[in-house]
Amino acid sequence: MSASKPTKRSDNSLGALVLFSGGQDSTVCLAHALSRYAHVETVGFDYGQRHSVELECRARLLKEFADVFPDWAGKLGPDHMLDITGFGQIAETSLTGKSEIVMLDNGLPSTFVPGRNLVFFTYAAALAYRRDLPVLVGGMCETDYSGYPDCRNETLQAMERALQLGTEKDFQIDTPLMWLSKAETWALADRLGGQPLVDLIIEHSHTCYRGDHETRHDWGYGCGDCPACELRAKGYREWQASL
C-alpha cells in the first residue's frame, strides 16, 4: 500500500528506486516493484552495521533475480551502494555496535536506530532526483514489526510530503507491506514469483540481527531467537499452516 495518493500516471510508465537491504521484506518489495514499474533500480546503505552479511547477501540476490526471472531482468537497472557510516557512529545501537539486544525502558528494542529510515529516504530521494525515478519503494510495515516509529505509515506520509516540498518533485513513497502481517508477506512473495521467489528468499536473503547466515531453518538462515528471526519464523509457519 502506498503512503501517498495515487499518481496520475500509470504505474507501468514510472521508474522506481527500491531501498534494498538484502532482507526478506526488501526482497519482496523488489519483486513488487519489478512486477509494477517500467524501470527499477536499487539502493543499499552501509551505515556501519555490526555485520556485513546483509550487504553480501544483497549482491547475490540481485544476481539471482536476473537469472531466475528473465522477464524481470530487462527492467532491473543499476544498483547503488551509499556509504553513510558516519550516521552509524552518531546513532550507535545494537545494530551498529556490540551491545546485547534487549528491550529498553522506552519500550523499544535496542536494535532501533533513531532516524534511520528518515535518513535512508533522504539519501534515496537525492539519488532518485538525479536518476529521474519518482517512486521510492520501502519495506516498512507497522503490522508485524518491532515497534520502530520510523516504520509507521504516518511517519512515511509526512516524509513523502517533506520530500515533495524540499525538492519540488512529485515523489511517491510506495510501502507495499505496510498493512501486511509476516505471513501475508510470505503469501505475497508466492503470488509475485511463486516457489522460485520463496526459495530465493529462504536461501539468499538475510534478516537476522546477529548476522548468523550459517544456521539453516525451514524459513531461512538466522540465529532463531533475535526479534527479526522470531518474526520471520512465526510468519513463515502461519503462512504454511494456511496453505
Rank of each mutant, 00 (worst) to 15 (best):
G115T: 07
G115A: 07
R116E: 08
N117D: 09
L118Q: 13
L118S: 12
F120N: 07
F121T: 00
F121G: 00
T122G: 15
T122V: 05
Y123P: 00
Y123K: 13
Y129S: 14
Y129C: 02
Y129H: 12
R130W: 01
R130G: 00
R131W: 06
D132M: 00
D132H: 09
L133F: 01
V135C: 06
V135R: 03
V135S: 04
L136V: 05
L136R: 06
V137S: 09
G139F: 01
G139T: 05
M140C: 14
M140W: 03
C141P: 05
E142T: 01
D144G: 11
D144R: 11
Y145P: 07
S146T: 11
S146P: 07
G147C: 03
G147T: 03
Y148G: 07
D150T: 00
C151G: 07
C151A: 15
C151L: 03
N153M: 15
N153Q: 11
E154W: 00
E154Y: 01
T155D: 06
T155E: 07
L156R: 01
Q157L: 00
M159D: 00
M159C: 12
E160A: 06
R161P: 01
R161D: 10
R161I: 11
A162C: 11
A162E: 02
L163G: 00
G166C: 00
E168N: 14
D170S: 14
D170H: 13
D170T: 07
F171G: 04
F171K: 06
I173G: 01
I173S: 03
I173A: 01
D174W: 08
T175V: 15
P176G: 02
L177R: 05
M178C: 00
W179E: 12
W179Y: 12
W179G: 08
L180C: 10
K182Q: 09
K182R: 13
K182G: 09
A183P: 10
T185H: 05
T185D: 04
W186K: 09
W186G: 05
L188F: 07
A189M: 05
R191C: 09
R191Y: 03
R191W: 02
R191G: 06
G193C: 08
G194D: 08
P196V: 07
P196A: 08
L197N: 10
L197I: 02
L197A: 07
L197E: 08
V198Y: 08
V198M: 13
V198G: 04
D199T: 14
D199C: 01
I202P: 08
E203C: 01
E203A: 13
S205M: 06
H206Q: 15
T207N: 10
T207D: 12
C208Y: 10
C208Q: 08
R210E: 14
